[in-house]
Computed example of a mutant assay.
Amino acid sequence: MPITPKLTRRHCLAGLIAAPAFAAAPEPSVKITVFQAGDDGYHTFRIPALLATRKGTLLAFAEGRKGGRSDSGDIDVVVKRSMDQGRTWSGIELVADHGDDTIGNPCPVQDSKTGRIFLPLTVNPGNVTERQMIDRTVPDRRTVFITSSDDDGLTWTILDEITSFTRKPEWTWYATGPGVGIQTHTGRLIIPCDHAVEGTRATLSHIIYSDDHGRTWQIGGSSDPGTNECQIVELRDGSLMLNMRNYHQQNRRAVSISRDGGTTWEPITHDAALVESVCQASLIARDNVLYFSNPASTKRERLTVRASKDQGKTWSAGQVVHNGPAAYSCLAPLKRDRIGCLYECGETSPYERIVFTSLPQSVLG
């Protein structure tokens, strides 16, 4: 558990009186490798997702890729747990294995009322690629599954297929997250997703949601074409913001707002402050402040975490956590006013390892 700083005390003639409390200097940021390529029988680990549970446990999810770095092949979903805010981590645990198939795109969310953690995932045959599904050179389409945990991520239920409720018949490619879902002030659980429509090559961001604490799921609204992997936050006024990977060749993140709980989305805009390399990014909200991480460059490098105190209108310069090759990331709120970041990085490639660090909110702006 985190150690609570002791108040300094001073003596005076009237007795022992507590001195005024001064803010302690923030703990330094430490970088810890959680998943290392080549460990535990996996060639590569990719697609990090980080969930801070209501009990204070950190769950670090990733895809364990057995045959190589490819997005297709024999891919499992694995997890490690931390009970001390990311200082130490458990051994690797298998969450989902679909034989030789690809199962991945972890995007966990926890119901604040029941404590149940939901982990939606997507599946396709290991010998089938995203491009083949989009181009319809194979009959396969991606399917959607969900598993859950009632013991803070120690054990997980058998995979339950929810494709018929969460994918339209004309959708071919499909991905949950990756990253994390949210629960709104109304109790709605929302998972950000993306898909491709048969007959086109365009991809679109969309959401799925549950209004009954995860018992059933349904499809929400979709964004404009040319968007992809996305993350979602609830803003101060109750509206939703979708922040999306963008294929409009402007090297800027795409943003859309929903004012009806995600049923419809406004036309996308491009955030000039959020430079991107056409890559996944992370976005979370905490105490009316937004936190965002991505490779802040026109290529996959310079993993940066920044903050916005005006609901995404402007962004701080933030903090560079890895200046070299870097790619996907996921943020989580930690104790003692810190933000955790789980991210892909390396010296010659972004996919050499997945690292955890935590940053004081004060240094992010």
Rank of each mutant, 00 (worst) to 15 (best):
I284Y: 00
A285R: 15
P5W: 04
G221M: 00
L154H: 13
D237C: 12
C341T: 11
P125L: 02
R336C: 04
E229G: 06
P5R: 08
V77K: 04
T57A: 11
D140S: 13
T53R: 14
P178T: 03
N124E: 05
E161Q: 12
G346T: 06
T263E: 09
N243L: 10
L364N: 05
R302Y: 06
T298E: 12
A18V: 01
D140F: 07
P20T: 03
Y174N: 12
P20E: 14
K31F: 11
G104A: 03
G199N: 03
V355Y: 01
R46P: 15
N251F: 06
F165G: 06
P108A: 14
D310M: 11
Y42I: 07
L51V: 06
D260I: 02
S70Y: 10
I75M: 06
D271L: 07
I17M: 08
F165L: 06
E161S: 14
A25Y: 12
G340D: 04
T357D: 00
F292A: 06
T176R: 00
R252C: 14
G153T: 06
E130M: 09
G115Y: 08
R336I: 10
N251W: 02
H195Q: 02
E347G: 11
G68A: 05
S164C: 10
I284G: 11
D212T: 04
R245A: 08
I191D: 02
E27A: 11
C330I: 00
R10F: 15
A19E: 12
A23T: 11
P178C: 12
E266M: 08
I17C: 02
L242Q: 13
S72N: 14
A327G: 03
D101G: 02
V278H: 14
Q311A: 13
I162M: 13
A19W: 00
A281Q: 15
D76N: 15
H43Y: 12
T143L: 10
Q132P: 13
K55G: 07
E229N: 03
R141P: 05
T203Q: 06
N243M: 07
G220T: 01
G226S: 01
P20G: 00
D310H: 08
P5H: 05
Q132C: 09
W89H: 08
G73S: 03
N246I: 02
V355N: 03
Q280A: 13
W89K: 05
